[in-house]
Design a binder for these strands. Structure first.
Lengths: 247, 247
DNA sequence: CGTTCCATTGACGAAGCTCAAAAAAAGTGG
DNA sequence: CCACTTTTTTTGAGCTTCGTCAATGGAACG
């Protein structure tokens, strides 16, 4: 559905040749079922993945079995990049729905970094974007209430679902159990439930199974204390000197 | 003190020429006083910084004035990279002690990414390492108690201080106010104080002003539920195909 | 059609927050 | 170096949010 160069192209305009390289990554597809562990924390790092379809959660375990879901990935996302810096994977990748992934071996990433500076720059900047997203999430967990966190998460997810073509008319699927929502937001499943109840009785949104409809987006936005960051897209490329186009 | 290629060299062995490029970054030094805002959230992104000496905090603001300190930077760290993907900086950089920074303009980063794939790869991997660190921190905030968080932070800081040469004999400075510690760990200053009191009365560590001495490191480690990640260093380079050394 | 997972609800407890005030420390200008 | 102000640390009392434990009903799935 979404092209694999989607994320790379966000910051750096790609040449047709580069687009073809990125498309090549989808040559090997792997379908995984809901709940399937794509890669477990501690496994060897054989490469990264491009998420073609479905939802994947990335999580970190603690010794006593607690875990923190770090990110919910949507189609078009790259999975597993942080672990490239590790001997053993630092995150567990788990399919939250049936999904299709494209494995990209380490060597392909190495080759890209060495041989194609424009793709590499795109990758680099999209990685920085992920870092900003993580910083935002850290501020949710550290400085906001259960309700604010939940709303911030749903709004963020809605935005991302829209740009992946997964939301229509303020309506989108959230295929996470309340247990998983809790692991994502740093709450217990019980408290997630109460928070959701409170939200739909507020009339700002409506839940029907996994389907969420945002009724009053502005009202919801007022509930969060977030300052949403504004991403640079191709501006970043220009700012970095857009070396090959200028020189 | 610490060379600017310290972080780049961690994952990718650098040639003498590359080392010289990185050293060039320190040509312009800027001294800043404690509490000085190096760059405020929302400012134009003119470049990044290399931290030569001193401590710098990087934080994210919420609309109502709350803030989350995202990272405490030590000498040798690169500052401000996430904001390269943004139109306006997404993080405030504040000197926690008197510090010396080297501004690196956008164009220099652009040039590096385009012209020097080995340096770029080193930068890329060290960025992924930061992402892993953020994921860890997210799991502290989402899944652990005040005490665990405090201990995890102090142990992490101790490790980093050691490798920056800032710790001797289990002793190191923590130049953060308890207010700031709270903003870092998602606690109130009051609760930070109670947690610290509880820690020193446990006998596992000792505080004297800003000086902390870890008395029983193993005991402290047992208090955290962390699974500390093991970083790849030059292995990552080999795994990615170490293109220029092999081919 | 039973088994298992998931959502929901209630009662209770605890970790951490708020408010307030005092003591200690650190700057600051003379 | 001394008075003065400001910041930081410390402590107490009461309260809120969220967690724990436990039980029930509903949905999904073989």
């Amino acid at each position: 559905m979404l092209p694999p160069y989607h994320r790379l192209e966000e910051f750096v305009p790609l040449t047709p040749a580069e687009t073809r390289i990125a498309e090549g990554w989808t040559s090997s597809k792997r379908s995984v079922k809901r709940h399937h562990i794509i890669r477990r924390e501690g496994d060897q790092v054989a490469g990264v993945f491009f998420l073609l379809a479905g939802w994947v959660g990335s999580s970190v375990m603690l010794r006593d079995g607690r875990r923190q879901i770090v990110k919910v990935h949507l189609p078009g996302d790259m999975l597993g990049f942080p672990s490239l810096s590790l001997v053993h994977a630092g995150e567990t990748l788990e399919a939250l729905t049936d999904a299709v992934i494209c494995p990209i071996p380490n060597a392909a990433i190495g080759k890209l970094l060495m041989d194609n500076p424009r793709l590499a720059t795109g990758l680099f900047l999209s990685t920085q974007k992920e870092r900003v997203a993580l910083m935002q999430k850290l501020s949710w967990l550290g400085a906001t209430s259960a309700l604010e966190r939940m709303v911030a998460f749903l709004l963020d997810l809605y935005d991302r679902a829209k740009s992946s073509g997964l939301a229509k008319e303020n309506r989108f699927e959230v295929p996470l159990t309340q247990q998983q929502l809790g692991e994502l937001l740093g709450l217990t499943a019980v408290h997630v439930n109460r928070t959701l109840k409170r939200l739909d009785s507020s009339g700002l949104l409506e839940r029907r199974k996994a389907l969420v409809r945002l009724i009053d987006i502005e009202g919801l936005q007022k509930m969060t204390a977030n300052i949403p960051p504004c991403f640079a897209h191709h501006d970043a490329w220009v700012r970095l000197g857009s070396p090959s186009s200028d020189a």
